[in-house]
Simulated assay, not measured.
Amino acid sequence: MPKIEAGSVREHRAQRLTRLIDAAEALLSEGGVESLTAGAVAARAGIARNSIYRYFDSIEDLLELVVTREFPAWIDAVAQAVAAAATPEEKAVAYVRANLEQAARGTHGWRASLSRTSLSPSTRERVRALHTTLHEALAQVVRELGHPQPELTVAVLQAVVDGCIRRIDQGDALTTVSDFAAGATRRLLAHDRP
């Protein structure tokens, strides 16, 4: 049995996978997708090249792990913000603000760019499914509000979020963008009320 570097095999595997994803992120930020090879990732992570395929099947799989790495924490942060709000309108505002706060953490822009340009269609579909899971929180809030056109309302609110995330990715201040988006959300919901 190979020597493990943690208290259990499971912890060891989790630590190794984290090192591999960290290495891939570093390579991507330094040299783009072209720099992401099995040998380069293994060398950066300090792991034997033939060992890295115990953690993923291909570089494409590693790219997916990099792109989706922050989704669980992002989805959880949004869900917590929505759950903490008192009214359906404030839940919608919390959804918008929480998404913008997550985007402002600094890695969304390059992950989104990587997702658009470097992933296979099947991997893009899996990433899209994660976004759909996130959007369901907003759809639930809009249903609670009883809007006559819930799908259109969700689409417009999500467009506000997406547009504001692009502004944050371009360097606009979170507070300014978040306040604008919250105001736009409140106005849209007030206008659309049955």
Rank of each mutant, 00 (worst) to 15 (best):
96 V>P: 00
109 G>V: 02
43 A>N: 05
103 A>L: 11
148 P>F: 04
177 V>D: 02
34 E>G: 12
172 D>R: 09
184 A>D: 07
175 T>F: 05
115 S>Q: 11
7 G>I: 06
15 Q>I: 04
12 H>W: 08
21 I>M: 04
30 E>W: 04
40 A>I: 00
44 R>A: 12
35 S>M: 08
188 L>R: 09
98 A>S: 12
22 D>G: 15
148 P>A: 08
121 P>M: 09
153 T>S: 10
103 A>E: 03
82 V>M: 00
87 T>G: 01
129 A>C: 05
86 A>V: 06
87 T>M: 00
1 M>F: 05
76 D>P: 05
27 L>G: 00
95 Y>N: 05
140 Q>R: 14
21 I>R: 06
61 D>I: 02
11 E>S: 11
37 T>S: 14
67 V>A: 09
24 A>C: 02
65 L>Y: 02
70 E>H: 14
162 D>A: 15
36 L>T: 11
10 R>D: 12
158 Q>W: 09
130 L>P: 09
184 A>R: 12
174 L>W: 09
154 V>R: 01
118 S>R: 14
133 T>E: 15
113 S>V: 04
194 P>E: 03
65 L>F: 07
97 R>Y: 04
124 R>V: 07
2 P>V: 08
184 A>G: 11
131 H>C: 04
186 R>N: 06
68 T>W: 05
155 A>W: 01
64 E>P: 03
114 L>H: 06
96 V>R: 00
133 T>M: 14
194 P>K: 04
135 H>D: 10
143 R>V: 14
151 E>N: 02
62 L>T: 06
132 T>K: 12
147 H>A: 12
78 V>R: 01
1 M>I: 06
46 G>E: 04
28 L>C: 00
109 G>C: 07
46 G>H: 05
24 A>W: 00
146 G>T: 05
8 S>K: 05
102 Q>N: 09
15 Q>L: 13
127 V>D: 10
187 R>C: 02
80 Q>N: 07
70 E>V: 07
22 D>N: 15
131 H>F: 15
71 F>C: 07
115 S>W: 10
41 V>Y: 03
152 L>M: 08
156 V>I: 15
124 R>G: 11
137 A>I: 02
24 A>Y: 00
93 V>M: 04
117 T>P: 03
61 D>V: 03
73 A>F: 01
117 T>L: 11
186 R>A: 07
167 R>T: 13
170 Q>K: 11
141 V>G: 00
32 G>P: 07
55 Y>D: 09
53 Y>F: 15
73 A>R: 13
96 V>D: 00
111 R>G: 00
141 V>M: 01
72 P>V: 07
123 T>M: 12
12 H>L: 03
151 E>R: 06
91 K>L: 04
119 L>H: 05
105 R>S: 11
49 R>W: 01
50 N>E: 15
141 V>P: 00
146 G>Y: 03
31 G>H: 10
174 L>R: 05
6 A>F: 09
161 V>F: 04
46 G>Y: 05
46 G>S: 03
44 R>P: 02
48 A>G: 14
29 S>R: 15
103 A>H: 04
101 E>L: 10
131 H>Y: 13
53 Y>H: 13
